[in-house]
Amino acid sequence: MSTPTHEMWTARLRGAWQRNLPIEKLLPDDQPAYVVSWIYVFGVATIAALGVIIASGVVLAFQGPAWYHTSDIGNFTNSMHFWSVQMFFAFMVIHLWGKFWMAAWRGNRVRTWITGAVAFVVSIATAFTGYLVQTNFDSQWISFEAKDGFNSMGVGAWFTVTNLGQMLLLHVAFLPLILGVLTLVHVLMVRRRGVVPPIDAVPGNMEVHK
């Protein structure tokens, strides 16, 4: 016997998606007046930097250390990967400052705040494993310093910073996957609830800018 359409999980999921995140919210063409401020730019600047990180990282992964340690274009791509990470963290921290001082968890946005905070922590882990997989004396030095810290916490046997294979897989596969999912969920939550209004915003004075 076939299950009625309205009870199928696909129909329930579709209904829930359409109720919570209709296409007008997902791809809006207008924003409240208070969004006309530079402080609202840093979230999307963080995502732009993440895009450059992923693109340069994919090139580095395909070409390999023998390329990015020796050729000029390899060194350039390696530096682009490094500096886009610096920009990513700078933009993300300024985004965090802005959202903290406007108490952006207001208006049932606590899950947006939490996914952002967890994404920040995962970004730090991803960046630090990046330092460990440079395949040079710098990464060797950092890993031998870091192992003492992890051993003192009792997790050294499980999280082995001197294990290049483990660190490489964490850096290029596991952690970016988690960060990518968290970023996607974070952005979808922002689209669902909308951008948080300023603390002193008057509900009647939120005209829309196209």
Partner: peptide, 10 residues
């Protein structure tokens, strides 16, 4: 520089 950017953005 980050603090200056934050102030400038506001």
């Amino acid at each position: 520089i980050m603090l200056a950017l934050f102030a400038a953005a506001i």
